[in-house]
Amino acid sequence: MQSVNIELEASLDFRSYEAYNTLRTNIQFCGKDIQTICITSCTPGEGKSTVSVRLAASLAETGKKVLFIDADLRKSVLIKRLKINQSVLGLSQFLSGMNTSEEITYGTNITGLDIIFTGPMPPNPSDLLSNKYFKELLQREREVYDYIIIDTPPLGLVIDGANVAESCDGAVVVIQADANSYKFVQKIMKQLEKSNCRVLGAVLNKVETKHQARYYGKKYKQYYGTSYAADV
C-alpha cells in the first residue's frame, strides 16, 4: 500500500475538540452494525468534508482501523485541504475499471487511518456511485476496517449522496447554522430515508457559542432527536 502525509486544518480549540469526541462517541453507541457511514449536507460550504475527515481521524485515535472514502466525485476539496503534494489515484479510476482497490488505497501518517481519494472527475458520477463495483468495494472493506467514513456531495444539489447511502449502514447530515430553512432540511432528510439508509442524526455546524442553547432547545432537537454540534 502506498502512503501519503495529510495535514488537518488548524488545531481545534477545546470546545470543538470535545464536540468531535461527542460525535465519535455517539457514532460508536449506534451499535456494531453501524460500520459504513456516509456524510452529506444540504448545500456546499457547510463544513461536510472537514467534519467527515475529522470524524475519521477521531475514530482512528481510539485504536480503530478506519477507511475514509472521498466520494464527492464532482467537486472534491480534500486534495487541497489536506495539502497532498503528490499525484494520487482515486475512486473514479477504480469504479471505471482502470485500477484495483489496492492501488487506490493509501495509508496516512495518522495511525489506523487509510484513505481513498476521488480521482479524476468522471462524466457520470452518479452512475459510478450506484454501480455494483462500489457496493462490492464497501463489502470487501467491511472485512478489513472497523469503520468506513464516506464523504458525499451535498444532497440538495445532486442525488449522489442518496446513491451512496443505499450501500451504507447509516448517514449523518452536516447542517450549517442559519444557512438553510427548516423545510429544506426536512426535504433532505426525507430523501435520505427513501434510500432505506438509517439516518443517525445531524451535525449542527459553525454554531456560535451564544446561539447553542437556542438551537438545542428548539426545533432542531425536536426534529432530529439527536443533534451533534461542532464549531469548525
Rank of each mutant, 00 (worst) to 15 (best):
I148T: 04
I149T: 07
D151S: 03
D151I: 09
P153R: 02
P153E: 13
G156C: 07
G156P: 13
L157N: 02
V158A: 09
I159R: 02
D160L: 01
G161C: 00
G161A: 15
A162R: 15
A162W: 08
N163D: 08
E166Q: 11
D169S: 04
G170A: 00
G170F: 00
A171M: 03
A171I: 02
V172R: 01
V173K: 01
V174E: 12
I175T: 06
I175A: 08
Q176S: 11
Q176E: 13
A177H: 14
D178M: 11
D178R: 15
N180L: 15
N180T: 05
N180C: 14
N180D: 07
S181Y: 02
S181D: 14
S181M: 13
Y182P: 09
K183T: 11
F184G: 03
F184W: 07
F184I: 10
F184C: 01
V185F: 02
Q186F: 00
Q186Y: 00
Q186E: 11
K187D: 06
K187R: 11
K187F: 05
K187I: 12
M189Y: 06
K190D: 01
K190P: 01
K190H: 01
Q191W: 01
Q191F: 01
L192A: 01
L192V: 04
E193W: 03
E193L: 10
E193M: 08
K194P: 02
K194Y: 06
S195A: 15
N196Y: 00
N196S: 10
R198W: 06
V199I: 14
L200Q: 08
G201S: 10
A202Y: 10
A202D: 11
V203Q: 05
V203E: 08
K206R: 15
K206E: 15
K206S: 14
K206Y: 13
V207K: 15
V207R: 15
E208P: 00
T209I: 00
T209F: 10
K210C: 05
H211A: 10
Q212W: 01
A213R: 14
A213G: 10
A213T: 15
R214F: 00
Y215G: 12
Y215W: 13
Y216K: 07
G217V: 08
G217Y: 01
G217F: 00
G217D: 14
K218M: 06
K218A: 04
K218H: 07
K219N: 07
K219Y: 05
Y220E: 01
K221G: 11
K221W: 01
Q222T: 07
Y223S: 05
Y224A: 11
G225W: 04
T226A: 08
